[in-house]
Write a protein that binds this DNA or RNA. Sequence first.
DNA 1: TCGTTTCGGTACGCATACGTATCGATGAGT
DNA 2: ACTCATCGATACGTATGCGTACCGAAACGA
Lengths: 204, 204
Amino acid sequence: MTSQAADGPETVASSRRSKITPEREREFFDAVLDQIRECGYDSVTMEGVAASTRCSKSTLYRQWKTKPQFVAAALRASSRVRFGGIDTGSLAGDLCEAARAAGDWSGKDTRLLQSLGHAITADHALKGVLREALVDPEIAALQEMLRRGVERGEVRADHPALEYVPAMMFGVLRIRPVLTGQYADADYLVGFVEAAVLPALGLT
Amino acid sequence: MTSQAADGPETVASSRRSKITPEREREFFDAVLDQIRECGYDSVTMEGVAASTRCSKSTLYRQWKTKPQFVAAALRASSRVRFGGIDTGSLAGDLCEAARAAGDWSGKDTRLLQSLGHAITADHALKGVLREALVDPEIAALQEMLRRGVERGEVRADHPALEYVPAMMFGVLRIRPVLTGQYADADYLVGFVEAAVLPALGLT
DNA sequence: TCGTTTCGGTACGCATACGTATCGATGAGT
DNA sequence: ACTCATCGATACGTATGCGTACCGAAACGA
């Protein structure tokens, strides 16, 4: 798709020969993560990434020794804390906002996690990178919300449902495609928070 | 001839085997599902299954045309409804009992689903088989529990949390290894039902 | 007892992918 | 303008796995 017009050999700057820039590196990372989402970790090939980014295998292998190391670098680079900036002043507001935020990237991240599926249990390094780059920060941010809610007195610190909130949030996110065939969107997740999570916490 | 005893069919007849019996077939199915759990779908090889069951590749390919068809047959044969026989008389009791039951096979089934990961999105036939053999029956059984609860008047039919119960149950099951590194056991699941699911349904 | 069936073992062809090596082309610094 | 580092292309060696073909041997039925 988006194939460029067949250009003369001397036209168009499509031939990149300069040193790899950070932007160029991000193209590689985006490409490999996209292919993982689409084909699964095992089916992703260095050749495929090279072709889709119009670079050569050599270029990839010059930067990263092996495929797992390449994927790990891509995961690390795509690390973001999506629950990070949320602080509405109430736990209910925070959780709803988190649900809304989650709906936006649910498809991409859920699919990535799904497609990495078994690879993360086979390759310890990959598993570690995935956890510290994508999983742990989100959990920490979510638990920070809960901590603030407890601090404000909205929920008792020993409320039995507290420890299950992260599992509920991420679990529902991840299981939706299996149950209904579609990824969880913001509406669904907000509805879930309002109908199940908040009541479980006694925040009707 | 027949100087060797080797009479009983179940006396560790190591060498040759006669026509494939249903028990023998189950050995093949168990082997391939075990290997999927351990190595992931893509890494499972017909050669590996043949070696671990001490049969030959030819034997496998005589029964099943391709690897996906073989795996599909194995999934179909392993179909069971684990939430099937549960009916304690109350919704709370049913859900707790389901949680307990789920704890028993959580590791195996969660791992299988995880290791099939992307394969089910790539191979439509596999996806269909997995759904109708392992997923849909459980969902149906769970919803039957909920239906009975509504019928008994324990929960209002339009209770907003109702539609999220399957997602909560299976979602938490599936996400636990990602969050804590261990599979959900019966204690954890029962605790989750009591602390989160029942309160969300207003069943204190 | 004898023939038919099916098994287990193995070799083969084909395809794919990893990772390496080589080579010409080209952009960047001086 | 010249040199050097790096890029893109490509060929190569190795390994692996799918699916097929062939063969001798063992089991089952008549």
